[in-house]
Design a protein around this nucleic acid. Structure first.
Lengths: 144, 144
DNA sequence: GCCATGTTTGAAAGTGATATTCATTAACAT
DNA sequence: ATGTTAATGAATATCACTTTCAAACATGGC
């Protein structure tokens, strides 16, 4: 059994000399029990149902911390909302985004990654990160 | 010789029942004579040098029109600025973005595009557009 | 446990980029 | 030249964060 995300985040908080608070615990629980790609707004609303006294700013700051600790990653799909996705250790994936219903699917493709490195090399670049998103209609929406 | 972008935009304006104005002409000239990836802000500043009385809102609205007419395309590189790039007919390319100096290079790769279609198909998606950006250090910055 | 210290929190205000409003001005058809 | 409709520019609004600040907490030392 690998280190759980709760443990990873807790260690991060300790190592940084930060404090473990009720709010952070609650936000982490909600984040971990949610779908993989959530905007701050979505998480905030979900949270409010049970914890109406937690502020937006706290959610915002805590998600940033999740990203910093390595258990989450910020993503932008160009709709003006920052989303946070769960990060599985050592794993990388890209996204398929449905332009109709907004559904997000993930995929991995070794060959594409390799080609990206080649392209970068031929331009003298060293890649640090990349972003690959395919936008279109998902199977469900196409049937309608 | 293909239809020029001026002609394409003018036809678009006519077809839509819009009007041809001095401002739109000027903004189009500045856009066409500029580097491929310009933010609204950059174009506005460049414009102000010779045409200090053209408003920001007009630039903003006109660039949207360029995109709608097909001669320009909106792109987001995650720095919070929308950029507009020139669109060459039938051509598609992706970007290499230097995380140090902000330089933007373009590339095309047939094989990657093909693989994208395969990935999409295996998920039941039909791709409409895609976005592939490689972020890293460009050759120049690496040497420093 | 109780304190001292530094961190967090939540409400409110601030930011920066984009988007809209509205009175005025300018294009185009007649 | 005139009427109609679209475009413009200044100002304002919006949106999604982001920061500020006083009050509330968490944690280590006594």
């Amino acid at each position: 059994m690998k280190k759980t995300k709760k443990k990873i985040f807790h260690d991060f908080v300790t190592r940084k000399g930060l404090k473990s608070t009720r709010q952070r615990d609650v936000i982490l629980d909600v984040f971990l029990s949610s779908e993989r790609h959530m905007s701050i707004e979505e998480l905030y609303l979900k949270l409010r149902a049970k914890h109406p006294n937690i502020g937006y700013a706290t959610v915002y700051r805590t998600l940033k911390l999740f990203a910093e600790s390595g258990i989450a990653r910020e993503i932008q799909f160009g709709d003006g909302q920052t989303r946070y996705e769960h990060v599985a250790e050592g794993e990388h994936h890209d996204h398929l985004v449905c332009t109709r219903c907004g559904a997000i699917e993930e995929f991995e493709n070794e060959t594409i990654e390799k080609l990206q490195d080649e392209v970068a090399a031929s331009h003298g670049f060293i890649i640090e990160t990349h972003k690959l998103e395919l936008y279109g209609q998902c199977a469900k929406c196409r049937k309608q």
